[in-house]
């Protein structure tokens, strides 16, 4: 196994002034180029973990290091990290409703210095890869839930991040589409050596990953890990 790409130590995240404990001392390591599935019951802290790794929120306690560095805290570094260090697929509300699928991918590249034509080409190619070459001009409202998630994946990859954080990317896909997306994620890992952290409820999706981390009540469910490995 190569260098650990993500190192999380005793991560604690409280909400509501300490009344809600979303993460309760989570320890975790993910190797560079590893495809890891994160599962667990609803409310166990999966999305919270993704948000912390994406530097959208700050931990209450504990440390996170990604690509060998602690997460940045300066606004400029934060913007740069969010744009280039990670690609993010949310569980909900991913896309801008007034833009086409193609434009939704392009917005990630606005201001990065990539020329318009190159942006368009890149967006087209990514939509191709997630199987949406025929829907580039459709607006989110005209797409199915699964298609929207695939546009979101394409957008997350627009700036070639080394790490993809995906929250339920196959949540609303039928099994055929789901297989397609999973195969695509696997190909990213194989061809680009990307590190992928994917939250999922679906055991079959989890099976496509190299390893599954099970959360329970905001930390690793150790028994489950033993069972799976």
């Amino acid at each position: 196994m190569s260098e650990p790409d993500i190192v999380v130590k005793v991560l604690v995240k409280d909400f509501d002034h300490g009344r809600i404990h979303a993460l309760t001392g989570l320890d975790m390591e993910v190797a560079q180029g590893e495809f890891v599935a994160v599962t667990g019951p609803s409310g166990c802290g999966k999305s919270t973990l993704i948000h912390l790794l994406a530097a959208l929120d700050e931990p209450t306690h504990g440390t996170i290091a990604v690509h060998g560095q602690p997460l940045p805290s300066q606004p400029r570094q934060l913007d740069h990290y969010r744009r280039h260090a990670v690609g993010l697929v949310f569980q909900l509300h991913n896309l801008l409703p007034n833009l086409s699928a193609l434009q939704n991918v392009e917005i990630a590249m606005i201001g990065t210095g990539v020329a318009r034509r190159a942006q368009r080409k890149r967006a087209q190619q990514l939509l191709d890869e997630v199987g949406l070459s025929g829907r580039t001009t459709s607006r989110p409202a005209e797409l199915s839930g699964g298609e929207r998630q695939r546009v979101a994946i394409a957008r997350a990859l627009a700036n070639n991040p080394p790490l993809l954080l995906a929250d339920e990317p196959t949540g609303s896909l039928d099994s055929e589409a789901s297989t397609g997306v999973l195969a695509f994620l696997q190909s990213l890992r194989i061809e680009h050596n990307m590190t992928i952290l994917m939250v999922t409820h679906d055991p079959r999706a989890a099976a496509a990953a190299d390893r599954t981390i099970r959360l329970r009540d905001g930390r690793i469910d150790t028994e489950a890990v033993e069972v799976l490995t």
């Binding site: 606004p75 280039h84 993010l88 896309l95 990630a108 606005i110």
Partner: peptide
């Protein structure tokens, strides 16, 4: 608001 949140989350700066 949500749209601006998404843009910020994927790396748009406040100034943008």
């Amino acid at each position: 608001t949500r749209e601006f949140g998404v843009l910020r989350a994927i790396g748009w700066s406040r100034m943008r």
